[in-house]
Amino acid sequence: MSKKTLLVVDDSPTALMMNTMLLGRQPYNIVSAKDGQEAVDKAIASPPDLVVMDVMMPRMNGIEACRALRQHESTRLIPVILITTRGEEEYVAQGFAAGCNDYVTKPVNATELVAKVRALLGE
């Protein structure tokens, strides 16, 4: 069975490296992007199985990128997990309104993130 592909998106090189390392320990192919626009472009060009994306990013933030993914035929069903700096209801509600499937808060808890990824991938 071929490995599933995760698109990990963060403008912070430190956070991107950390999340890539955490998810890279699992049997997934990891593709990365450094902002929402790059993530949308990469997802349309080659749809991943799941997207893990930071909210606060330059050019196109995670909420806008999530909305863009939901509007495109080839990416509208891809599960999206948003990484939010703040976990209050209003911030989380914005993410769900944009079409995200789940969220984790910073600093990312590896066990929680991996569990959510697995659940959304039906593993």
């Binding site: 912070s12 090189p13 430190t14 956070a15 950390m18 700096t85 910073k106 600093p107 990312v108």
Partner: peptide, 9 residues
């Protein structure tokens, strides 16, 4: 900054 924000929280 990134360490303090993203890793420490």
């Amino acid at each position: 900054s990134e360490i303090v924000v993203n890793l420490v929280g």
